[in-house]
Design a binder for these strands. Structure first.
Ligand SMILES: [Zn+2]
Length: 178
DNA sequence: CTTGCCGGGAT
DNA sequence: ATCCCGGCAAG
């Protein structure tokens, strides 16, 4: 089966040692081959082989670890998928939209674009509707957003492997309907 | 700041 | 088909 069920992390297969860690809640089993960790999960977590039941869940990740030979005198540079420079960037550094979205929106504040034409005799304050809340019946307009929580909020950014497939792909949730 | 997801990309 | 993200709307 797939010896490659890996998480987001570990971008490319670097030239370092690789370990396979069981990500079952509370279990920190680590080995160096995927067959070993699969056997571990099957045996100690999923119980013995279920008859006629294929497609087991594989709760483990493959991650690279600092090579031992040359410099090992320093702290162990093996991080649990938390505190990732890139993952943390998502929680904190999202200041990008706060500055740009208001520009593309064109209506950060009740600013209005007056249309002034000298050839117009009537002088009534006219405005141009550059972009507003328009709902077209025949268009696939944005769905109204439901009030019930979806996989993302229920399980959190950690334990993403518990989300339904559509939520993992940032598509409309299928587990919790509207 | 966050959640939810459409449109579109990559494999 | 499967997997994922950019960017946006709404809260
Ligand atoms: Zn879901």
């Amino acid at each position: 089966m797939s010896c490659e069920a890996v998480g987001r992390w570990c971008k490319s297969h670097l030239i370092n040692s690789v370990v396979f860690e069981c990500t079952w809640r509370g279990c920190g089993y680590i080995t160096n081959t995927c067959l070993k960790v699969e056997a571990h999960i099957r045996q100690t977590h999923l119980g013995p082989k279920k008859e006629g039941d294929h497609e087991e869940e594989f709760y483990y990740t493959e991650r690279e670890v600092a090579a031992p030979p040359p410099t090992l005198s320093h702290r162990d540079m093996c991080r649990p998928p938390h505190e990732d420079p890139d993952y943390q960037r998502q929680l904190v550094g999202s200041y990008r939209q706060g500055l740009l979205s208001t520009l593309q929106n064109g209506a950060a504040r009740p600013i209005s674009i007056p249309v002034t034409h000298s050839w117009s005799s009537s002088q009534s304050p006219k405005h141009l509707k550059i972009s507003g809340v328009s709902s077209s019946p025949g268009s696939p307009g944005r769905r109204p957003r439901s009030d019930n929580k979806k996989c993302r909020k229920v399980y959190g950014m950690d334990q993403r492997d518990l989300w339904c497939t559509q939520c993992k792909w940032k598509k409309a949730c299928t587990r919790f309907g509207d």
